[in-house]
Design a protein around this nucleic acid. Structure first.
Lengths: 104, 104
DNA sequence: CCAGAGGTTCGATACAATACGAACCATGCA
DNA sequence: TGCATGGTTCGTATTGTATCGAACCTCTGG
């Protein structure tokens, strides 16, 4: 059962949901940018420069959160996104590395 | 430019398209079943036992073909599906292994 | 030559996804 | 307390996807 903020537990993360979350250019871009950061790094949801309205941005982060790819941490006023790197790695070894960069 | 049968060339295979193709339970199942086979193995499109009509099955194989995941080979009357394993591996190393099995 | 099997294509339908603005709820700061 | 900032939620329009049956094409085997 996902927690109150919608984060699935480790053994609830579904491969199909993860792939569906990554199968959108904007969301893939977010994950790729988080892969460049150090493990455990946090980034403002607004810092990715997504060319959409804030309601749409909120939607995309919800998809990433509910798929189990990111954890969203409340930091007072704003909200930080953190890649659940070790969770994904332990459940689907090699997947994040494989999608970390887009060739050409 | 894809060839006459709709197969993209190696450098035309897009990560987002591959992920979108895999983000469907039936298509993921097909790829996983092909991963179990020996490299270069061919399988009848009908041999996967997909619980859909033949027009829908044709649609799913078209998505896999146009994403670059499989090659479809004409064998007289029927058509065989072959995983483009080395192509995907060279372009997105580790991706196929990461999605080869669904945990639990 | 004709019938059947395997695939594709087309049109229709139903459902899901993306996108936006408006309204709303917090937090933080003057 | 008032107000700006960052996010979420809601309603909605648009678009895309999955699905089916019917029609059609092509090859195989009587």
């Amino acid at each position: 059962m996902p927690d109150a903020e919608g984060h699935p537990a480790l053994d609830e993360i579904q491969l199909v949901s993860v792939l569906a979350a990554l199968a959108d250019p904007l969301r893939l871009e977010v994950v790729q940018k988080l892969m460049v950061e150090a493990d455990g790094a946090e980034r403002h949801c607004t810092s990715f420069g997504l060319p959409v309205s804030k309601s749409t941005r909120s939607h995309h982060f919800k998809v990433l959160r509910e798929a189990g790819l990111i954890k969203q941490v409340d930091r007072g006023n704003s909200r930080m996104a953190q890649l659940r790197r070790s969770d994904i790695e332990s459940r689907f070894p090699g997947l994040l590395d494989a999608v970390a960069t887009t060739p050409d």
